[in-house]
Design a protein around this nucleic acid. Structure first.
Lengths: 343, 343
DNA sequence: AATTAGCACTCGTAATATAAGAGTGCTAAC
DNA sequence: GTTAGCACTCTTATATTACGAGTGCTAATT
């Protein structure tokens, strides 16, 4: 178990390193207000902390920097929640002050403001639409063999897809088709659509529509869900300004990972509600060895919807980022709940 | 005027530098197949070429690199069109082989393949939708004060916007409204919608709809055009691997510009049809001092639609990039024309 | 027993010198 | 007009040195 003094020293080392990005030496530590003992004492304590794995040296006679374990301990036990400044709070609130009704736009804006306030990269996993319920299907013929199918969900999300149909189908039939679909599918969660189409709609189509099987597949294919929710980014290039990434190769790895969204998506989806912090290799992604990822979830009512995340160097301002994420995720949830809950 | 020998030397210098990114010396030049005179002769010619501003030294005794003027001359007079390899052509064709009907998806794919084939950054300015003609407006009520307006154009482009309306409006009126709009606005280019609404639709609304002025503005606002067409990117981070951008500050400037799309948009929009090449400072953008931008336009039928562009270092493979852009822009035009021309 | 002063030692960084090599410009010979 | 030859320049790499920040250990102090 760590002594109080060791905790204090660990805390100050982490704080200082987060601020300066420079290894922290015993002499500079001893000059801090909160520290009242000599460099020699500090050196002894630091030697112990190093032995325990909380801090490391960059070379034999350098100052110390926090290890991953050190950050982990700091985050778990030493973090004091940062009181956000007025101007920060104000900026966040301003995102939600304006009356915007597009869910996507709100989310996009949140990502932007987060990256601006932190100088890190922000990632927002868009609202899960698979549980949205179908409000309406519209079919608009473009020409005699092509039509566009538009589906609207109860949260106002719109998707569309162009499909081909047999020229033999006349406009009357097309209308009938739309009616059947709306009749049978309204209120069904998007994720269940395919199933329902084959089970219930197929029979009806057979009765009323010529070329029934061709259409059936066209429809089912058209209403298939997109692979996964969209990711929104803010400050994609902010990492270029972090001294931790002055090495262009590290940078390349990181930026590549950010651009090829799949692995990020894996890291971010399906978080339990609340704040989650992954430090360095805890992310199990070699490009993120020197990064930490902090995520928070947002929801409409009690239904968890998506995730807000900040990607920064392991040397990130944990306290501030956590406060900001907390603020924005609750605000986001509140606004979205207000907008879409009671319909 | 340049002598044939000077032209030859200039050409070989540019070619070699494009390949190697290293200043080219007289000795290595003299070893090339196409060159049959001694290093000393070459040095004399190079001194002349330098005096004329076509090449420069990086320091007193270095080999030469092309100047902007050199690149310009190379591009204008010395470029031999590259015969694309089978595999390149095949890859491009494969983008269009699959039957895709979403315009955006085709464009997106084109951007991706371009960046993969060049290792530069590709930018595609999406199809201009402002001249698309309105096919259909749909209004789907979400709850008693919110509805979503969906417009479909003749090319299958879909836009939607959520708007609020007075709770006093009943569903019958809403339907009437949709009918009026479709009746009056079908076939109207999107860009003229606002105008038409105030001039022609307003009168009708007054007759049939309660709360007519509130609705009028809601509608007009909803149908307002988005600021500008979307930009699609491929290989945003490819510049990280270009040796020309080993300097992290240059890189930062460039990446920032790419991320804040406005200035790029300015550089790309409203190109005359055909290929355009801007070298270095010709782009009039400080972040692009060491970049060249090559653009090509694509169209549906005779109507110019958008732009395909490659952003690379000034030391870019002009010949190859031009061939690729030509290939992809004509293919793109052909496919889009096939899809949307004869409706 | 805990703390601290003192000191030798390590290592990184920056400055300086040196050598090698690539390339040039010029002159004189071909 | 072309080219061989050569002195010169400048970059790059490597080694040398000096310096300073920081350490670990020991012995003295509290």
């Amino acid at each position: 178990m760590l002594t109080d003094r060791q905790l204090l020293i660990l805390q100050v080392i982490v704080d200082d390193f987060i601020r300066s990005a420079q290894p922290v030496g015993s002499r500079s530590l001893s000059k801090k207000e909160e520290i009242s003992f000599s460099p020699a004492t500090i050196r002894n304590e630091m030697a112990d902390l190093e032995e325990l794995g909380f801090i490391e040296k960059t070379h034999t006679s350098s100052g110390r920097i926090p290890s991953e374990k050190g950050y982990r301990y700091y985050v778990d036990h030493l973090l004091l929640p940062e009181q956000l400044g007025h101007s920060d709070v104000h900026k966040v609130k301003s995102v939600f002050a304006e009356r915007i009704y597009e869910l996507e736009k709100i989310v996009q804006r949140s990502a932007k403001i987060l990256s601006e306030l932190t100088n890190y990269t922000s990632i927002v996993l868009g609202p899960a639409v698979k549980d949205n319920k179908l409000k309406k299907i519209q079919i608009v013929p473009l020409n005699k063999e092509t039509a566009i199918a538009i589906i609207v969900t109860d949260t106002g999300h719109v998707e569309n897809k162009i499909f081909q149909f047999p020229a033999s189908l006349d406009s009357g039939e097309m209308e009938k088709l739309a009616n059947i679909l709306n009749d049978r599918l309204a209120g069904v969660p998007l994720v269940d659509l395919t199933n329902k189409i084959y089970k219930e709609v197929a029979v009806l189509l057979r009765l009323h529509i010529s070329n029934y099987d061709l259409m059936l597949h066209a429809i089912a294919d058209t209403l298939k869900m997109p692979g996964h929710e969209k990711l929104f980014f803010g400050g994609k290039t902010n990492m270029l300004s972090q001294p931790d990434f002055s090495d262009i190769n590290k940078l390349r790895g990181l930026m590549n990972m950010i651009e090829h969204e799949d692995s990020l998506y894996k890291l971010i989806r399906e978080k339990k509600s609340g704040i989650s912090i992954k430090i360095g290799r805890e992310n199990e992604n070699s490009a993120m060895e020197d990064c930490s990822l902090i995520t928070a979830t947002y929801s409409i009512g009690t239904e968890q919807l998506g995730t807000v995340a900040i990607l920064g160097p392991t040397r990130m301002e944990y306290s501030r980022v956590i406060s900001l994420l907390q603020l924005i995720s609750t605000d986001l949830s509140r606004v979205l709940t207000d907008l879409y809950q009671n319909k």
